[in-house]
Write a protein that binds this DNA or RNA. Structure first.
Length: 434
RNA sequence: GGAGGGGUGGCAGAGUGGUCGAAUGCGGCGGUCUUGAAAACCGUUAGGGCGCAAGCCCUCGGGGGUUCGAAUCCCUCCCCCUCCGCCA
């Protein structure tokens, strides 16, 4: 959620910033400002009347105390009419406020000044590349083929169970997935100082709203229903990312400044309906309805939001460095960023079997956009005022695509997979294959 | 799922229709005293909104209602606790 005051004070600037994203949203600014004016006028007026009623009611109480009942009755009649006016005014205020909130909640965050302006992914900027792409003396196979040959993932039976886009890992395939999760969690906990949490894999809609998933992207979520009770449909949602529960941990709290920074790491499966994306890269494990992810979340002082973003990206990159997987880090342009983000870096790992880079991490500073939506504040040690912290999220990293890259990069001519050194203790093997 | 009890400020805990945004205690912060600390004493300490400001309004789990007036009465939803049933 944007700060209304900023919209009020610098509407042209806000319009320009919004237009630099995907565009279109800037046209709501005039409506928004009009609703804001109307809203404040109604508040001022109805509060004046409320003050009057409050005073009069106290007087009535005093008259009753003095047993001057007739005078009290006369006053009551007048105050009753006042009450009616207040009520109708507040009904109108409520409507105006609902429309105002609706508009506010659908406006995306404003891009940070350091974000390149661009319409789509073509405007993104590669900020660094790491690692040498391996030279193969044979044709590197795609992960799908490797998985099938080695019996790591049973795509057909996964689809049989839950439909296409759901994976059944088997044998060493399942063990490798588990080893990766463990490796990632340990890396971030032991070496990067994050606190491990294990959240619910479903959240209420208030949490989805808090991180900016709702209301705009409700069509992308899996809604849960309890048994046969249709009333309960939509009370809970399968999480699309651990960001949904973890970023909301301290919602509606006022933290002490000394509590900051807070750094959490969490493993969770992620569920994405991917409505409208049917047929787009649906083969294999690159785009699926359920995948595992280790997520990083930070809640930090606004003065340090951007240094914390840089260190978060470094933490995520370390994953690929340790595994020896070549990658590049991309600064997203205004047109390619997510709804809540003010600045985002994507990390893309090289997948030789695909002949392309795969996005395995997306690290964003959402500034106070989410904190506003979830009423997350901290008390400033300087002036005692309550302020909104910056909330950051980053994948550290997504598993399915990391898995793809690992298999494709580490494959041998005979089809075996040589496991990267740091992962061996977790897997309990150096090589997968016959 | 059934029966009962309960949600008040950072915490504990009063308040059952009026001057109550809320006693008191603890904790926190500031001060006095002290070489320093403790103790004692004094003061201070919820959130949100509107307003240039003075100030005003709202909030006692959420929403709705009764009333001139609601923390207090009614309805409803949510959450927590105890017991029973079922169950990983």
């Amino acid at each position: 959620m944007l700060d209304v005051r900023v919209v009020r004070e610098r509407p042209d600037w806000v319009r320009e910033r919004l237009a630099s994203r995907h565009g279109g949203d800037e046209r709501f600014i005039d409506d928004l400002l009009e609703l804001d004016r109307r809203r404040r006028a109604l508040i001022a007026e109805s509060e004046g009347l409320q003050a009057e009623r409050k005073r009069a009611s106290k007087e009535i109480g005093a008259l009753m105390g003095q047993k001057r009942f007739e005078e009290a009755e006369t006053r009551k009649q007048a105050v009753r009419e006042l009450g009616d006016r207040i009520e109708s005014m507040q009904r109108e205020l409520k409507e105006v406020e609902a429309r105002f909130e609706e508009l506010m909640s659908r406006l995306p965050n404003l891009p940070h000044e350091s974000v390149p302006v661009g319409a789509d992914a073509d405007g993104n900027v590669v900020v660094r590349e790491w690692g040498e792409r391996r030279q193969f003396d044979f044709e590197p196979r795609p992960h799908t083929e490797l998985c099938e040959r080695l019996g790591l993932v049973d795509f057909a039976r996964g689809a049989k169970l839950a439909g296409s886009g759901f994976l059944l890992y088997t044998g060493w395939g399942a063990r490798l997935e588990r080893a990766l999760i463990q490796f990632l969690l340990d890396l971030h906990v032991r070496e990067h100082g994050y606190t491990e949490v294990s959240p619910p894999f479903v959240v209420g809609r208030h949490c989805m709203f808090g991180v900016g998933q709702f209301p705009k992207f409700e069509d992308q979520a899996y809604a849960v229903q309890e048994g046969l009770d249709a009333e309960t449909l939509g009370r809970l949602y399968l999480i699309p990312t651990a960001e949904a529960p973890v970023a909301n941990i301290h919602r509606e709290e006022i933290l002490a400044e000394a509590d900051l920074p807070i750094r959490y790491v969490a493993y969770s499966p992620c569920f994405r309906a991917e409505a409208g994306a049917a047929g787009v890269g649906t083969r294999g494990m690159i785009r699926v309805h359920q995948f595992d992810k280790v997520e990083l979340i930070k809640v930090v002082h606004p003065d340090h939001g951007y240094e914390e973003l840089e260190s978060m990206v470094a933490d995520a990159e370390r994953v690929l460095q340790r595994l020896g997987l070549p990658y590049r880090t991309v600064l997203l342009c205004t047109g390619d960023m997510g709804f809540a983000a003010a600045k985002t870096y994507d990390i893309e790992v090289w997948a030789p079997g695909q002949g392309q880079f795969l996005e395995v991490s997306s690290c964003s500073n959402c500034e106070d956009f989410q904190a506003r939506r979830m009423a997350l504040r901290f008390k400033s040690a300087v002036d005692g005022k309550n302020r909104f912290p910056h909330v950051l999220n980053g994948s550290g990293t997504a598993l399915a695509r990391l898995y793809v890259a690992l298999l494709e990069n580490c494959q041998q001519a005979d089809g075996r997979i040589v496991i990267p050194e740091p992962l061996r203790p977790y897997l309990g093997a150096e090589v997968i294959g016959p």
